[in-house]
Design a binder for these strands. Sequence first.
DNA 1: CTTCAACCTGGAGCGCGCTCCAGGTCAACC
DNA 2: GGTTGACCTGGAGCGCGCTCCAGGTTGAAG
Lengths: 115, 115
Amino acid sequence: MYAPSEAARRSGFSLDTLRYYEKIGLLADVGRTSGGRRVFTDDDLSWLLLFRCLRDTGMPIAEMCRYAALAREGEHTADDRQALLERHAERVEEQMRLLQRQYDHLREKIRFYET
Amino acid sequence: MYAPSEAARRSGFSLDTLRYYEKIGLLADVGRTSGGRRVFTDDDLSWLLLFRCLRDTGMPIAEMCRYAALAREGEHTADDRQALLERHAERVEEQMRLLQRQYDHLREKIRFYET
DNA sequence: CTTCAACCTGGAGCGCGCTCCAGGTCAACC
DNA sequence: GGTTGACCTGGAGCGCGCTCCAGGTTGAAG
C-alpha cells in the first residue's frame, strides 16, 4: 500500500500524471481511503513500472490503453497482448539501430572538431 | 542544386518542415530562383542531414538553433559548438542505456507470455 | 484542538514540432 | 496559349502528453 507521493517516487511519474492515467482509464480501479485519497497496491505499482517501460521505449499512450484494456478482458486475450508487445519490441529494435547509427554520425562530427 | 521536393526526399523532412526550419531561422540564406522558389545547395543538404541526426537523437530544435547560430558567427565559436555536441552525445549515451534497459524488461515480459 | 502538508476535483493551459489550409504564382510540357 | 503540378506566403490548427490552477478536504503530528 502506497500513498500517491510514494507511488510517484517509485514509478517515476508525477502525481499529476498518475491522476491523468487514472482519468483516461489507463490505470483502473485504484483504491481509496475513506477520505477519498488514492491508495496504490503492489499490483498498481507493477502496472506503473510496465507503463514506465513502455513509455520510455516510445509506445503511445493510446496503445498502452489498448494493452491494459485487453488485460482487463481476461486470460483469453493473452495472445493479442503478446503480439502487441512483440510488435512494439520490433519497433524498439529499429529505434535502437537508428539511434546507434545517428550516434555514430554525431561522434564522427565531433571527431572532426578535434582535428 | 536541389528543388524543394528533392531536398525533402534526401533529408527525410517534409516540405512544410523545410519551410518551417527556414522560418524559425534554423536554416538560413536558402537561395531562390527568379520566380521565388527555393533552391537547396549541397551545403544546405549537409546542414539538413546534420539536423536529421540531431533530431533523431532527440536534440530540441532550440538547441539546434543555438548550434546553427554559433556556426554562423564564425570559426571562433568552434570550441562552443564542439562542447555543445559533446554534451548532447553524452545525453544520447544515457538515452541508449535507458532504451537498452527497458528493451530488456520488455523482452522479459514477452518471455513470460511464452510460457 | 490546531496546524499544515499532502491530497482531492474539474477543467484550462502549455510546449513542442510540426501540419494544414486558402488563395495565389510559376514553369515545363503538349 | 492552355493545362497541370510543383511551389509560394501567412497564419491557423493540431496531436501528444502532460502540467498547472483554484478552491476545497483530509489526517497525522505537536
